[in-house]
């Protein structure tokens, strides 16, 4: 059987405040319909790995889109733009939620969409995924090792004019999307205690969730080009991700093209 002829590339969408921003989209072949997934990149930016992960989602039958949350700091190469965003202190939660909503709205309005929409994020994007599960309209969410869901009580008071970042854990009562959490037990942010405390709050509020904790894995263990990559744990966790989406977004359409159609 052939692999699906995924199409991918950069498009322009409307994000927060109607701003035009870049997004990387990957789509299975054919007219669908496909469930959609918005992928939220981490603090180092809209990098090659986030594009690979977006294509992986499409390979498995989802129309996927990764909005470039630092678009407004461009133009330029994604790494240089990320450096500018870093120097400016990153981006605020309200803007990120607006961009994520814009990406989801874009997918939903495409003729190939089933209308079902998931979200996934890694690291800082995991934290933002948690927020999106609380504040936006998603059918399933996957938080991969999002740090800061429970803010550090010892963190310095933000300087006047600093970007507003919410306390995600305090938004939990608003959570509508079923949440899958993927964590490494050697991670220090979130550490196992923070993960346990987050789970306790989800449980207390009766939310639909499923947490998976992996021994022998730390932070960012999906990244194949980093020493922290853990093949066994990552492979299992990706299986959990696709099972979660199939359960809550519906089964993706078969994406393998019949030989006669090629």
């Amino acid at each position: 059987m052939p692999h699906p002829a995924v199409t991918s590339g950069t498009i322009q969408i409307h994000g927060h405040n109607g701003d035009q921003i870049e997004a990387y989209m990957a789509k299975p072949p054919g007219d669908g319909p496909f469930p959609g997934v918005v992928l939220i990149h981490h603090m180092p930016g809209w990098d090659e790995w986030c594009c690979e992960a977006t294509r992986k989602l499409a390979h498995h039958g989802y129309a996927a889109i990764a909005p470039h949350l630092f678009s407004r700091f461009g133009p330029g190469q994604p790494d240089d733009i990320a450096a500018k965003a870093r120097a400016a202190g990153g981006v605020g939660d309200e803007q990120v939620m607006g961009d994520v909503k814009g990406a989801a709205d874009f997918l939903r309005t495409q003729s190939f969409s089933t209308g079902k929409m998931g979200v996934i994020g890694f690291c800082s994007g995991g934290r933002q995924t948690y927020l999106a599960a609380c504040l936006l309209d998603f059918d399933a969410a996957v938080d991969c090792w999002g740090g800061g869901v429970i803010p550090d009580p010892n963190a310095a008071t933000p300087a006047p004019g600093a970007l507003v970042r919410m306390s995600p854990i305090e938004q939990t009562d608003k959570m509508q999307a079923p949440l899958l959490g993927i964590f490494g037990n050697d991670d220090r942010n979130p550490d196992p205690e923070q993960v346990n405390n987050t789970e306790a709050e989800l449980k207390r509020l009766g939310k639909t969730y499923e947490f998976h904790r992996y021994d022998g894995a730390g932070h960012g263990f999906f990244a194949v080009d980093r020493p922290g990559y853990r093949s066994e744990q990552a492979t299992d966790a990706w299986t959990k991700v696709f099972a979660w989406y199939e359960k809550h977004l519906g089964a993706p359409s078969p994406v393998l093209e019949p030989a006669a159609a090629r």
């Binding site: 603090m43 932070h219 990244a223």
Partner: peptide
């Protein structure tokens, strides 16, 4: 001190 963009480090 954070994830790198290019260096093969965590």
């Amino acid at each position: 001190f954070d994830h790198p963009y290019h260096a093969p480090l965590d």
